[in-house]
Structures are given as C-alpha cells and as structure tokens.
Simulated assay, not measured.
Amino acid sequence: MNAQAVTRLLERLVADETFAVGLVEAVGGRQGEAAIEAVVAYGNENGFPISAIDAAELQRHLIADAELLEGDLDDDDLDAVAGGVLVGMGFDPLQVRRAAEQALAKSLGRSGNTALDGFIKQW
C-alpha cells in the first residue's frame, strides 16, 4: 500500500468537505471494481497516486474500523485489526467516519450509519 498517498488522501477527506463530497460523487452508484476504479481515478486526478490495491485495502480497513466501532467483530477479526490502520496512520476512526457521513449527507441527501456503511461497502 502507498501509505503516504493514502494518509494524505485521508487527511484531505477529513479536512476538506468539498473534496470528500467529490469522492462520493465520483463513486456515485458504482459498485465493486467500477467503484474502486472511480476512487483510484479521483485520487489520482487530485494528486494522490493510489492504486486499485490501495483503494481496496483502504476500503477493507474502513469497514473493519467501522465494525470495530460498532462492536461487530469476532475475536479473530479483532486481532487482525488491533489498533486499526487509521489509528496507526494517526487518524481517529470516529473523525474519519464523521467527515464521510457529512460528505455523504451533503452529496446524496442521505445520512446516518446505514447510508455510510452502504457507501463504503459498495466501493
């Protein structure tokens, strides 16, 4: 994973609501590989050289961190994400989640955990 680019992208997502809304709009209704490609394209267009592997790995960690926050992980999953990648990169998972929820609400007119979880899981 290009940790530096992913870290910078996360920093921008948390700090810049317009950027976060742009990411939500870039992904739109795409799912699976098409959504991953949209995340990669948006990141690269905005100066964050990430790959499909980076985007997929970030998605996996965002889902795991969300499940950790909600207490939905079993012991094996908890061991696998202990500390979480976001925490390891210096991010508070709640801060990232709040920024994403705000961007989703602004872009799609939807808010709440279910909408955000659905968006993260679709890409």
Score class of each variant (00 low, 15 high):
M1C: 09
M1S: 12
A3T: 12
Q4T: 12
Q4E: 13
R8H: 05
L9I: 04
L9A: 02
L10R: 05
L10E: 01
E11G: 10
R12D: 04
D16Y: 00
A20R: 08
L23W: 04
L23F: 06
V24R: 02
V24M: 04
E25I: 07
E25A: 09
A26D: 10
V27E: 09
V27S: 06
R30Q: 11
E33F: 13
A34S: 14
A35C: 07
E37S: 15
A38P: 05
A38I: 01
A38G: 06
V39M: 09
V40L: 07
A41K: 12
A41Y: 03
Y42H: 01
N44R: 15
N46D: 07
P49M: 12
S51T: 14
A52R: 13
I53R: 15
D54P: 02
D54I: 08
A56G: 15
A56Y: 10
A56M: 15
Q59E: 11
R60E: 11
H61E: 15
H61F: 13
L62K: 08
L62Y: 01
L62E: 00
I63Y: 06
A64D: 05
E67A: 15
L68M: 15
L69H: 00
L69F: 01
L69Q: 09
G71D: 03
G71T: 09
D74V: 10
D75R: 08
D75W: 13
D75F: 14
D77N: 05
L78R: 11
L78A: 13
D79E: 15
A80K: 08
A82Q: 11
A82K: 11
A82Y: 12
G84S: 08
G84E: 00
V85E: 10
L86Y: 03
M89G: 04
M89A: 12
F91L: 04
D92R: 11
P93E: 06
P93K: 05
L94S: 12
V96P: 06
R98A: 13
A99M: 06
A100C: 11
Q102D: 14
Q102F: 07
Q102I: 10
L104S: 01
L104W: 05
A105M: 09
A105W: 09
L108V: 08
L108G: 04
G109F: 02
R110M: 14
S111V: 11
S111A: 15
S111C: 05
G112P: 01
N113G: 15
T114Q: 15
T114H: 13
A115N: 00
L116H: 01
L116W: 02
D117F: 11
G118Y: 10
G118S: 11
F119C: 05
Q122I: 07
